[in-house]
Design a protein around this nucleic acid. Structure first.
Lengths: 118, 118
DNA sequence: ATTGAATATTCCTTGACAAGAATATTCTCA
DNA sequence: TGAGAATATTCTTGTCAAGGAATATTCAAT
């Protein structure tokens, strides 16, 4: 995950990923769309590739880069732990509220036992 | 998103977020668990806070840090676009395969018209 | 084989940021 | 109000990574 976040923690690379969301593209096209120089595009793609976020499919002297679905699934399952974490926090909160209601009821009954068998 | 990724692109901060997944913690406890010095913990928490990933709840002279659910929801909706993107890629692939089958059938029928009305 | 197109790599400089040390701030309690 | 605990900030230093320029590599076509 660390490598993934490091790879995405750059504006150019975030733009590249957004571009590739639409369609696989060659290095030259990416450089053109982002208005950066070709070597920078290559370097960013190298970083993204090392992090497993993109894969390359050579086509003659071109190299077509595409998003790698697995890495996004990995990111999703990382995030899943947090989704569950928040759910559990809400559950705990619910229990606390339940307990508060039960306690309030008990206190009422202790104060006025007639309420116990309404 | 860029700020979020930048905040998560550090091993200590990634650990802090993982810690807070279990329960909100004070600065001192976080520093202790991560075996880093208190000022570093404060600085990392500052970064996470600036990125909106955590929120603070003062308790006497302690400051209890907790994950901020909204930022993870934002991350989730960012990721959602990519989930959809891959779905569409598969759909396109399915259509291509369908077309291939249709074409194969047509070619068969053109080669042997008797197959057209089985 | 040679040329040209597309891409990758290297070297260099510079800016950003993390860690460490010291200090400042904030809050509680006696 | 003074002391101490918990946390935040500042300053410095060292490291890493991005951008630019130049060059190397790879591949197709003639």
């Amino acid at each position: 995950m660390l490598e993934t976040f490091r790879a995405l923690a750059d504006p150019s690379r975030l733009q590249i990923v957004a571009l590739l969301l639409c369609e696989p593209l060659s290095v030259g096209t990416i450089a053109e769309r982002l208005r950066i120089r070709q070597p920078q595009a290559s370097k960013h793609l190298r970083t993204l590739s090392d992090a497993g976020l993109v894969e390359v499919h050579p086509d003659a002297q071109r190299r077509i880069y595409a998003l790698r679905a697995q890495s996004f699934r990995d990111l999703d399952s990382w995030l899943e732990r947090y989704r569950r974490g928040f759910e559990q926090q809400f559950e705990r909160l619910d229990h606390v509220l339940e307990d508060l209601q039960v306690n309030a009821k008990n206190i009422k009954e202790q104060t006025n036992p007639a309420l116990g068998r309404g």
